[in-house]
Simulated scan of single mutants.
Amino acid sequence: MSRLILDDETGIDDSGIVRGDTVAGWREPSGRIDWAVRDWQPEPEIVAQARLDEWEAVLARVGRHAQLGVRHGDGRPAWHGLSKSPDDMNRGIVGATLVAPGRLADVTAATRQEDFTGIQVQGARRVQQLVVPRIVEHPQGAELDPAEARFVVGAPAAQAPAAPLDLPEELTAALLRRLRRQPVDVARIAVGLRVAETWELADGFQVPVVYDVAPGRTQGYVADPDGTPHSTLQACRNHHLAGVLQWCTHCLQPTCVSCSEAVRLCRLCQGLACGDCVVTEDGRCRACAALTKVGLFARGRFGVSAGGSAWHGESPNVQVTVRQQRNWWTLERWDRNGRVTLQLDPGISRELR
């Protein structure tokens, strides 16, 4: 068996550090070995360690990038290359930066913080922003080149101690076989962004919002409860941020789906009314709740002939008129959206006074 000669009596082979009949075999490290990880970025996995008196040796690797490190006493270690893999060094620095120390990472898609476009809130200004990576595990798609992935995610450059490939081939092969007995931990990820912002509205109220940027995309979105994405938001009267607002035609105030008093359709006129402006138990708006039968001499003003009837109700911004000509019933509504005429079922007469 070939050896790395350390001194006249001591060497390293596949079994460990050897001196005559004494063998200090390779074993799993019992703790951190500072000198063995000091000049690496990321820190390597120390797969095996051997120690005999003043001599100490380690087998260190980042994926398929493997080196034998040897130190005498408190001196500087000497490193010998077993295999070189710049790709795995880049995978290692990405994994250590984004996943966990000692893990390598293959990246299928990524978004740089410098490249994304955030949301906008109409009539407000952003006063704070925090952007951090968001990891998606087990994504679909082909892996990026490891060097490109390191650049995109903003990980620092990988480095290892200088280590010539100067060991005997037989010893190199034996030590690599020992390393390969333990599998390398590789994660498959995609890297998007999670963005936390604070927006100050026109009235001075500050609203926090958190949203994600999908891996490989540059535009940030906030999703409505139904899943619809929006890159531009508006504030409702309760300071919720939403992509779509519904305006009450009575009080002219906006609400969103998160509001307890969200806009809904009036049961009778089908106009948009917020929860505060729906005022009857059966769901009628302020104008419909105020419907009152028009007197005989005023019917003409509401477009009803002498043989017909009319009911009229108003709120500050809505007018509703119900007309009956023989067995023909109609409802006319005027609001900020214009005029709408609906045909009614004759049974409506039971609900009018």
Rank of each mutant, 00 (worst) to 15 (best):
R112F: 02
Q113T: 13
D115N: 10
F116C: 06
F116Y: 15
T117I: 06
G118P: 09
G118M: 06
G118Y: 04
I119W: 00
I119R: 05
I119A: 05
I119N: 03
Q120F: 09
Q120H: 13
Q120D: 14
V121T: 03
G123Q: 01
G123Y: 00
A124V: 07
R125E: 14
R125P: 01
R126L: 11
V127C: 05
V127M: 15
V127G: 05
V127I: 15
Q128I: 00
Q129S: 14
L130D: 09
V131H: 03
V132P: 00
P133A: 06
R134G: 00
I135P: 01
I135Y: 01
I135L: 12
E137C: 00
H138P: 00
P139R: 12
P139S: 06
P139L: 13
Q140W: 15
G141F: 13
G141H: 14
A142N: 14
A142W: 11
A142Y: 10
A142M: 15
E143C: 05
E143L: 10
E143T: 12
E143I: 12
L144Q: 14
L144T: 09
D145N: 08
D145A: 13
P146F: 07
P146Y: 04
P146V: 10
P146I: 12
A147V: 06
A147G: 07
E148W: 00
E148A: 13
A149L: 11
A149C: 07
F151L: 12
F151V: 08
V152R: 07
G154Q: 02
G154C: 05
G154W: 07
A155V: 15
A155I: 07
P156I: 15
A158T: 11
A158C: 06
A158N: 05
Q159R: 15
Q159H: 09
Q159L: 14
Q159E: 06
A160N: 09
A160E: 14
P161M: 12
A162Q: 13
A162N: 14
A162F: 11
A162C: 01
A162W: 08
A162S: 11
A162H: 13
P164I: 10
P164F: 08
L165Q: 10
L165V: 02
L165E: 12
D166R: 04
L167Y: 08
P168L: 09
P168A: 03
P168S: 05
